[in-house]
Design a protein around this nucleic acid. Structure first.
Lengths: 192, 192
DNA sequence: ATTACATTAGGACAAGTGTCCCAAAAAAGG
DNA sequence: CCTTTTTTGGGACACTTGTCCTAATGTAAT
């Protein structure tokens, strides 16, 4: 049980921050979830900011691992970006309920003017840079970052409306539109 | 001063809910902003939910008036939708700081599982229905709602990333892309 | 076994929350 | 003018918040 309790806390906080939002989650909520006392809690994390910091670090690592795995498993950069867009389908039910874990956290911390804003934005940036790399591999050195931002923009927009309307058909349709856009973009790049 | 105090409260709450978020804004914050006592406050609004309800009502009315004005001022449905997309440019600095007033409220209330979720979603729906009407006027009866949702999705996605990265160039570029997409969509509809 | 350290429980703390009451002041109506 | 109603200020309320302390317990190493 060396570091297990700490990990349990971070895992529970990660889930609760996503489901209820950072501010709306209290020490007591997390402690109850892990079934430990507040004193024990304090031994691992002195402030709420520290927990958020740990949660952000875990999320960053998780996503980096996922993206690394995709890079290993999927050969074509185009297919990799497609895989990214398909998260919206794979995680559809969670996103319908609570939105995008990355986007909603960035939005919330922005309103709170929280010190960990840069940390949360860093997760978004991880995706941005990964996408940029994929587009560079497709020979779009010049506008790789613009294309990456466009893909991000679409996924964030879809996530917000998926959460608002909880409409499966909409999500599927927009994912197909995004894929169609991707293909047509790449078609012009190979002809030029 | 018959209803002036009440209006002041709603106006201040409207701004603070937008800038700091609903939950992160307290009775004291609003009261201090309007420079009244909490007792006076309570006379106008018994619960925090009631203020939110009033704020949502005001926002809904404001947006409805704005959309009505656009319908009166701008003849072409295409130009009207363009006008909608251009909000992102006109309100750019606010959106960079605090995101989309509609989208961020829907997102926050979803996390709080708040009773006024439907109210906030109703503002989004006002835009959706207005956009749908414009596309119908362009002769796209069949997929008018899909196109409306696509426009909404783009503006929400742009707003989230504008808030995250605070990048003017990105916003301008994506607005132009949205306008280009609109034109190309309508070109196919007139040829069919 | 004894020392040293890590972990835990339970509670105390001040500050802030939304809610509510009540009496004074102002306004309105006759 | 006097009465009635609306509006206001000031404070009390029960509760939750994040933070912090201390004492007890477990665990590991010498």
């Amino acid at each position: 049980m060396r570091k297990k309790t700490r990990d349990h806390i971070v895992m529970a906080a990660d889930r609760l921050f996503y489901e209820r939002g950072y501010e709306h989650t209290s020490f007591a909520d997390i402690a109850a979830e892990v079934a430990i006392s507040r004193g024990n809690f304090y031994h691992h994390f002195k402030t709420k900011d520290e927990i958020l910091e740990a949660v952000i670090a875990v999320r960053l690592t998780d996503r980096a691992i996922m993206l690394g795995r995709w890079e290993a498993e999927v050969a074509s950069p185009l297919e990799r970006v497609m895989r990214f867009v398909k998260i919206l389908i794979v995680n559809q039910s969670k996103i319908k309920q609570h939105g995008c874990p990355v986007g909603t956290l960035c939005t919330e911390l922005s309103k709170l003017d929280h010190a960990q804003q840069d940390g949360a934005n860093g997760i978004m940036d991880l995706f941005r840079q990964w996408l940029t790399r994929q587009f560079r591999n497709m020979g779009r050195e010049r506008d790789a970052d613009d294309l990456a931002m466009h893909v991000l923009m679409r996924s964030q927009g879809i996530a917000v409306l998926a959460n608002t309307y909880r409409d499966d058909t909409f999500v599927r349709r927009e994912v197909e539109l995004a894929e169609a856009w991707l293909r047509s973009e790449l078609a012009t790049s190979t002809t030029v």
